[in-house]
Design a protein around this nucleic acid. Sequence first.
DNA 1: GCCATATATAAGCGATTGCTTATGTGACGG
DNA 2: CCGTCACATAAGCAATCGCTTATATATGGC
Lengths: 104, 104
Amino acid sequence: MMETEIFRALADPTRRAVYERLAAAEMNVSELRAGFAISQPAISQHLAALRAAGLVTERRQGRFTYYRANPAALAPVVDWVERYRNFWPKRVESLKQVLKDMEP
Amino acid sequence: MMETEIFRALADPTRRAVYERLAAAEMNVSELRAGFAISQPAISQHLAALRAAGLVTERRQGRFTYYRANPAALAPVVDWVERYRNFWPKRVESLKQVLKDMEP
DNA sequence: GCCATATATAAGCGATTGCTTATGTGACGG
DNA sequence: CCGTCACATAAGCAATCGCTTATATATGGC
Protein backbone atom coordinates (compact mmCIF):
# COMPACT_ATOMS: atom_id res chain seq x y z
CA MET A 1 0.00 0.00 0.00
CA MET A 2 1.35 3.35 -1.10
CA GLU A 3 -0.24 5.28 1.76
CA THR A 4 1.43 3.05 4.30
CA GLU A 5 4.90 3.99 3.08
CA ILE A 6 4.06 7.70 3.16
CA PHE A 7 2.41 7.62 6.58
CA ARG A 8 5.29 5.57 7.93
CA ALA A 9 7.83 8.00 6.55
CA LEU A 10 6.01 10.89 8.20
CA ALA A 11 5.53 9.04 11.48
CA ASP A 12 9.11 9.72 12.57
CA PRO A 13 9.59 13.22 14.03
CA THR A 14 13.17 13.54 12.78
CA ARG A 15 12.03 12.60 9.30
CA ARG A 16 9.26 15.17 9.40
CA ALA A 17 11.80 17.77 10.53
CA VAL A 18 14.05 16.80 7.62
CA TYR A 19 11.13 17.17 5.25
CA GLU A 20 10.28 20.55 6.73
CA ARG A 21 13.80 21.84 6.22
CA LEU A 22 13.78 20.58 2.63
CA ALA A 23 10.44 22.25 2.07
CA ALA A 24 11.96 25.55 3.14
CA ALA A 25 14.97 25.24 0.84
CA GLU A 26 16.83 22.81 -1.40
CA MET A 27 19.87 21.57 0.47
CA ASN A 28 22.67 19.05 0.26
CA VAL A 29 23.16 16.35 2.87
CA SER A 30 25.92 18.13 4.77
CA GLU A 31 23.91 21.33 5.06
CA LEU A 32 20.93 19.30 6.18
CA ARG A 33 22.94 17.38 8.76
CA ALA A 34 24.02 20.64 10.39
CA GLY A 35 20.57 21.08 11.92
CA PHE A 36 20.48 17.68 13.63
CA ALA A 37 22.34 15.91 16.41
CA ILE A 38 22.58 12.60 14.59
CA SER A 39 25.24 10.99 12.43
CA GLN A 40 25.59 11.43 8.68
CA PRO A 41 24.49 7.85 7.93
CA ALA A 42 21.36 8.42 10.02
CA ILE A 43 20.48 11.41 7.86
CA SER A 44 21.15 9.40 4.70
CA GLN A 45 18.88 6.63 5.97
CA HIS A 46 16.10 9.09 6.70
CA LEU A 47 16.54 10.55 3.22
CA ALA A 48 16.35 7.06 1.74
CA ALA A 49 13.02 6.49 3.50
CA LEU A 50 11.65 9.84 2.33
CA ARG A 51 12.93 9.17 -1.18
CA ALA A 52 11.33 5.70 -1.28
CA ALA A 53 8.03 7.32 -0.34
CA GLY A 54 8.50 9.90 -3.07
CA LEU A 55 8.45 12.71 -0.53
CA VAL A 56 11.80 14.14 -1.62
CA THR A 57 13.72 14.23 -4.88
CA GLU A 58 17.47 14.28 -5.35
CA ARG A 59 19.68 16.16 -7.76
CA ARG A 60 23.31 15.08 -7.93
CA GLN A 61 25.87 17.76 -8.63
CA GLY A 62 29.48 16.72 -8.44
CA ARG A 63 30.17 15.29 -5.04
CA PHE A 64 27.05 16.85 -3.59
CA THR A 65 23.50 15.56 -3.60
CA TYR A 66 20.86 18.21 -3.29
CA TYR A 67 17.48 17.25 -1.90
CA ARG A 68 14.20 19.06 -2.06
CA ALA A 69 10.70 18.33 -0.79
CA ASN A 70 8.15 17.08 -3.28
CA PRO A 71 4.87 18.33 -1.82
CA ALA A 72 2.86 16.65 -4.58
CA ALA A 73 3.71 13.34 -2.93
CA LEU A 74 1.58 14.40 0.03
CA ALA A 75 -1.50 13.97 -2.15
CA PRO A 76 -2.27 10.42 -0.95
CA VAL A 77 -2.39 11.74 2.63
CA VAL A 78 -4.92 14.38 1.65
CA ASP A 79 -6.71 11.76 -0.43
CA TRP A 80 -6.99 9.45 2.51
CA VAL A 81 -8.29 12.15 4.83
CA GLU A 82 -10.65 13.24 2.12
CA ARG A 83 -12.32 9.84 2.10
CA TYR A 84 -14.11 10.88 5.26
CA ARG A 85 -15.42 14.07 3.78
CA ASN A 86 -18.93 12.78 4.33
CA PHE A 87 -18.33 13.93 7.89
CA TRP A 88 -17.69 17.48 6.83
CA PRO A 89 -18.45 19.74 3.86
CA LYS A 90 -16.74 18.83 0.63
CA ARG A 91 -14.55 21.87 0.41
CA VAL A 92 -11.71 19.41 0.77
CA GLU A 93 -12.08 18.73 -2.93
CA SER A 94 -10.22 21.89 -3.78
CA LEU A 95 -7.10 20.82 -1.91
CA LYS A 96 -7.09 17.50 -3.71
CA GLN A 97 -7.35 19.28 -7.03
CA VAL A 98 -4.56 21.68 -6.20
CA LEU A 99 -2.25 18.82 -5.39
CA LYS A 100 -3.17 17.05 -8.61
CA ASP A 101 -2.37 20.19 -10.59
CA MET A 102 1.13 20.22 -9.16
CA GLU A 103 2.14 16.89 -10.66
CA PRO A 104 5.24 17.31 -12.85
CA MET B 1 4.71 15.37 19.71
CA MET B 2 1.02 14.99 19.04
CA GLU B 3 1.40 14.58 15.30
CA THR B 4 3.79 11.70 15.77
CA GLU B 5 1.21 9.65 17.65
CA ILE B 6 -1.42 10.31 14.99
CA PHE B 7 0.85 9.60 12.04
CA ARG B 8 2.11 6.46 13.71
CA ALA B 9 -1.41 5.26 14.41
CA LEU B 10 -2.30 5.75 10.74
CA ALA B 11 0.92 4.18 9.49
CA ASP B 12 -0.40 0.67 10.08
CA PRO B 13 -2.70 -0.58 7.31
CA THR B 14 -4.82 -2.71 9.64
CA ARG B 15 -5.31 0.28 11.90
CA ARG B 16 -6.34 2.47 8.98
CA ALA B 17 -8.80 -0.23 7.94
CA VAL B 18 -10.21 -0.30 11.48
CA TYR B 19 -10.56 3.46 11.39
CA GLU B 20 -12.30 3.27 8.02
CA ARG B 21 -14.83 0.77 9.29
CA LEU B 22 -15.50 2.92 12.34
CA ALA B 23 -15.91 5.94 10.11
CA ALA B 24 -18.63 4.11 8.21
CA ALA B 25 -20.54 3.08 11.33
CA GLU B 26 -20.29 2.91 15.09
CA MET B 27 -19.51 -0.64 16.06
CA ASN B 28 -18.58 -2.77 19.05
CA VAL B 29 -15.36 -4.73 19.20
CA SER B 30 -16.89 -8.07 18.25
CA GLU B 31 -18.61 -6.63 15.20
CA LEU B 32 -15.38 -4.93 14.22
CA ARG B 33 -13.37 -8.09 14.66
CA ALA B 34 -15.62 -9.91 12.21
CA GLY B 35 -14.03 -8.06 9.31
CA PHE B 36 -10.45 -9.03 10.15
CA ALA B 37 -8.38 -12.20 10.29
CA ILE B 38 -6.65 -11.32 13.55
CA SER B 39 -7.33 -12.16 17.18
CA GLN B 40 -9.56 -10.18 19.51
CA PRO B 41 -6.61 -8.89 21.57
CA ALA B 42 -4.97 -7.64 18.40
CA ILE B 43 -8.09 -5.61 17.60
CA SER B 44 -8.20 -4.27 21.16
CA GLN B 45 -4.55 -3.24 20.88
CA HIS B 46 -5.17 -1.43 17.61
CA LEU B 47 -8.14 0.30 19.21
CA ALA B 48 -5.96 1.31 22.15
CA ALA B 49 -3.48 2.92 19.76
CA LEU B 50 -6.23 4.74 17.87
CA ARG B 51 -7.81 5.80 21.15
CA ALA B 52 -4.49 7.12 22.50
CA ALA B 53 -4.17 9.23 19.36
CA GLY B 54 -7.70 10.49 19.85
CA LEU B 55 -8.76 9.04 16.50
CA VAL B 56 -11.62 7.02 17.96
CA THR B 57 -13.91 7.44 20.94
CA GLU B 58 -15.49 4.71 23.02
CA ARG B 59 -18.94 4.41 24.51
CA ARG B 60 -19.44 1.61 26.99
CA GLN B 61 -22.87 0.00 27.08
CA GLY B 62 -23.23 -3.00 29.32
CA ARG B 63 -20.71 -5.62 28.30
CA PHE B 64 -20.17 -3.97 24.94
CA THR B 65 -17.86 -1.15 24.02
CA TYR B 66 -18.91 0.79 20.98
CA TYR B 67 -16.27 2.66 19.03
CA ARG B 68 -16.64 5.39 16.48
CA ALA B 69 -14.20 7.42 14.42
CA ASN B 70 -13.46 10.95 15.56
CA PRO B 71 -12.60 12.73 12.31
CA ALA B 72 -11.85 15.98 14.13
CA ALA B 73 -8.69 14.28 15.43
CA LEU B 74 -7.40 14.21 11.86
CA ALA B 75 -7.00 17.98 12.05
CA PRO B 76 -3.29 17.87 13.01
CA VAL B 77 -2.61 15.85 9.86
CA VAL B 78 -4.29 18.47 7.71
CA ASP B 79 -2.57 21.13 9.78
CA TRP B 80 0.82 19.60 9.11
CA VAL B 81 0.22 19.28 5.38
CA GLU B 82 -1.10 22.80 5.37
CA ARG B 83 2.20 24.13 6.66
CA TYR B 84 3.55 23.73 3.13
CA ARG B 85 0.76 25.72 1.59
CA ASN B 86 3.37 28.21 0.37
CA PHE B 87 3.88 25.63 -2.35
CA TRP B 88 0.29 25.86 -3.44
CA PRO B 89 -2.60 28.30 -3.20
CA LYS B 90 -4.01 28.84 0.24
CA ARG B 91 -7.36 27.27 -0.40
CA VAL B 92 -6.26 24.74 2.18
CA GLU B 93 -7.28 27.25 4.84
CA SER B 94 -10.92 26.31 4.41
CA LEU B 95 -10.30 22.68 5.28
CA LYS B 96 -8.47 23.66 8.42
CA GLN B 97 -11.36 25.86 9.45
CA VAL B 98 -13.93 23.16 8.78
CA LEU B 99 -12.07 20.76 11.02
CA LYS B 100 -11.81 23.39 13.73
CA ASP B 101 -15.56 23.97 13.57
CA MET B 102 -16.18 20.30 14.26
CA GLU B 103 -14.58 20.34 17.70
CA PRO B 104 -17.06 19.23 20.33
C1' DG C 1 -24.14 -17.10 43.62
C1' DC C 2 -22.42 -19.21 39.10
C1' DC C 3 -21.23 -19.44 34.34
C1' DA C 4 -20.87 -17.54 29.82
C1' DT C 5 -19.86 -13.37 27.19
C1' DA C 6 -17.32 -8.95 25.93
C1' DT C 7 -13.34 -6.63 26.25
C1' DA C 8 -8.83 -5.31 28.21
C1' DT C 9 -4.32 -6.36 29.82
C1' DA C 10 -0.05 -9.24 30.46
C1' DA C 11 3.63 -11.94 28.81
C1' DG C 12 6.38 -13.61 25.24
C1' DC C 13 8.21 -13.77 20.50
C1' DG C 14 10.02 -12.80 15.84
C1' DA C 15 10.25 -8.80 12.79
C1' DT C 16 11.23 -4.11 12.14
C1' DT C 17 12.96 0.49 13.56
C1' DG C 18 16.44 4.01 14.22
C1' DC C 19 20.61 4.53 15.65
C1' DT C 20 25.66 3.63 15.79
C1' DT C 21 30.48 2.49 13.76
C1' DA C 22 32.80 0.71 9.80
C1' DT C 23 33.37 0.50 5.01
C1' DG C 24 32.37 1.38 0.11
C1' DT C 25 31.97 4.53 -4.01
C1' DG C 26 32.68 8.25 -6.66
C1' DA C 27 34.15 13.06 -7.56
C1' DC C 28 37.43 16.90 -6.81
C1' DG C 29 42.16 19.13 -5.99
C1' DG C 30 46.91 18.70 -5.53
C1' DC D 1 47.58 8.93 -9.35
C1' DC D 2 46.43 10.01 -4.37
C1' DG D 3 44.41 11.68 -0.54
C1' DT D 4 40.27 13.88 0.91
C1' DC D 5 35.59 15.01 0.82
C1' DA D 6 30.40 13.93 0.20
C1' DC D 7 27.45 10.59 0.50
C1' DA D 8 25.58 5.77 0.49
C1' DT D 9 25.53 1.18 2.16
C1' DA D 10 26.55 -2.69 5.44
C1' DA D 11 26.59 -4.72 9.86
C1' DG D 12 25.24 -4.87 14.45
C1' DC D 13 22.36 -3.66 18.44
C1' DA D 14 18.81 -2.07 21.80
C1' DA D 15 14.12 -0.60 21.60
C1' DT D 16 9.68 -0.93 19.77
C1' DC D 17 5.96 -3.22 16.93
C1' DG D 18 2.27 -6.32 15.90
C1' DC D 19 1.02 -10.51 16.70
C1' DT D 20 -0.03 -14.65 19.55
C1' DT D 21 -1.80 -17.27 23.86
C1' DA D 22 -3.05 -16.80 28.57
C1' DT D 23 -5.34 -14.34 32.05
C1' DA D 24 -7.88 -10.56 34.31
C1' DT D 25 -12.12 -7.60 34.77
C1' DA D 26 -16.74 -6.67 34.22
C1' DT D 27 -21.48 -7.36 32.99
C1' DG D 28 -25.70 -10.07 32.14
C1' DG D 29 -28.66 -14.17 32.37
C1' DC D 30 -29.98 -17.95 34.95
